[in-house]
């Protein structure tokens, strides 16, 4: 399997006024295609920054960030936006669905960044919602759905434009145990059956067990724990 994501010697420092905090001082990371990685660590470990770097929503100070042969560390904001639209599916802790849109319309959002026809879009939305088992709720607004259902809509949104990898930020942080397991099961399915590469940041060791491997991040440095 080829390396999908590769971070080489990535450095990142935050400056706030006179203070500067170094998060990463030469971070390396390789994630193969088809991998399902959980990243754990205490607060302040840099996992949020890593998340943002992987998702292209933040830029490193130096080092290489390779994604499927494409170097994104030099991209400007506009290029990163385009790259994100093509390559990443996001799943957030608090779902972040748009309250004014129904489930199908929420799922359709990433497709507005493509040139697909209306018919094609509808087909993709249907497929995505069926995968997460919520096609019968397509017309419901987020406030009419439970937490677990909202997260599944969010997953459908994340996979609708068939991105290469999914980036999850505490996807089960707001759910009860049973619902959480459902969601994680769905993620596993996406990884095993559809071959999606998944990177999941979590603080929950139970959630990390669903992944293929877990990386521990502490003070900007990795320690791997294989399961």
């Amino acid at each position: 399997m080829s390396a999908l994501i590769q971070l080489k010697n990535v450095k990142k420092t935050y400056r706030r006024g006179k203070e500067s905090i170094t998060i990463f001082d030469g971070l390396n990371l390789t994630i193969e295609q088809g991998d399902f990685v959980a990243i754990m660590g205490p607060s302040g470990s840099g996992k949020t920054t890593l998340l943002n770097l992987l998702g292209g929503t933040d830029r490193s100070d130096s080092g290489e960030i390779n994604f499927d042969g494409e170097r994104i560390d030099g991209y400007n904001e506009g290029q990163l936006a385009g790259w994100r639209a093509r390559s990443v599916g996001f799943i957030f802790q608090f779902y972040n669905l748009m309250p004014v849109l129904n489930a199908a319309q929420n799922v359709e959002l990433p497709l507005m960044l493509t040139k697909l026809s209306a018919g094609k879009r509808r087909a993709n939305v249907e497929t995505a919602l069926k995968i997460v088992g919520l096609w019968d709720r397509a017309k419901h607004k987020p406030k009419e759905l439970s937490g677990g259902q909202q997260q599944r809509v969010a997953i459908a949104r994340a996979i609708v434009s068939d991105p290469k990898f999914l980036l999850c930020d505490e996807p089960t942080g707001d759910l009860d145990r049973n619902t959480a397991n459902d969601i994680l099961g769905t993620l596993q399915q996406l990884n095993q059956d559809l071959g999606k590469t998944i990177v999941m940041v979590t603080h929950d060791p139970e959630a990390a067990r669903f992944a293929k491997r877990t990386l521990h991040l502490d003070k900007g440095v990795f320690a791997e724990v294989t399961q």
């Binding site: 904001e77 506009g78 936006a81 639209a85």
Partner: peptide, 15 residues
């Protein structure tokens, strides 16, 4: 604010 952040995250350009 958050929704706009999400839109941008999904890939909607700032313009």
């Amino acid at each position: 604010t958050k929704e706009i952040g999400v839109m941008k995250t999904l890939g909607f350009s700032s313009p």
